[in-house]
Write a protein that binds this DNA or RNA. Sequence first.
DNA 1: CGAATGATCGGCT
DNA 2: GCCGATCATTCGA
Length: 205
Amino acid sequence: MRKHKRLDRTFYTRTDVLQIGKDLLGKVLVSNIDHQISSGIIVETEAYRAPDDKACHAYLNRFTKRTSIMFEEGGHAYIYLCYGIHHLFNVVTASSGMAHVVLIRAIEPLENIKLMLNRRGLAQVKPQLTAGPGVMSKALGLSKKYNGIDLTSADSSIWIEDHGIEVANTNIIKSPRVGIDYAEECALWDWRFRIKNNPYTSKAR
DNA sequence: CGAATGATCGGCT
DNA sequence: GCCGATCATTCGA
């Protein structure tokens, strides 16, 4: 039994995806893969919101097999393979029918750092261990195989805990999202959130 | 059925 | 700072 409580359904089903993105900072992402637990504090997130967000896969509520998970009720995991190599971990929010998601971009290693180093093939801890959506997933052992699981289910392999870490508003930095230039004006929206002065966020800009 | 494309990372210059 | 890897998914024919 874990010491800390999992976030429950009501956390995820709120309608303001930007607020959820901010609230997730300081929460702890945990994975239990092959009976091995590893975890980290969420330090950087990014919000995506259909139908008006061109950067979102479900822009204009485009409904395909891949995006269908985004229309599920909040609390599910949307894991997507990017550039053929990287698994990106997202949390589905809002109620079913609303394709709102939060991309978890970086964590600060917490439990079982040794296992994470192993998965990453690194010898010692450095920010690049978990600073970035692709490497973070790799460190925690997340992959497409877990796409669509329910984070609030008692027996899921991935979940998010509240360790009572408070992140003051003044310690949250907002900035534009990157890597989505094709999204035109949407690329300018300040929908990326990170904890100020945390070395495990991806490079500041 | 075939072709284009991307919410990134790491290595090289 | 820039460039290439690499494949599931999507869309058009």
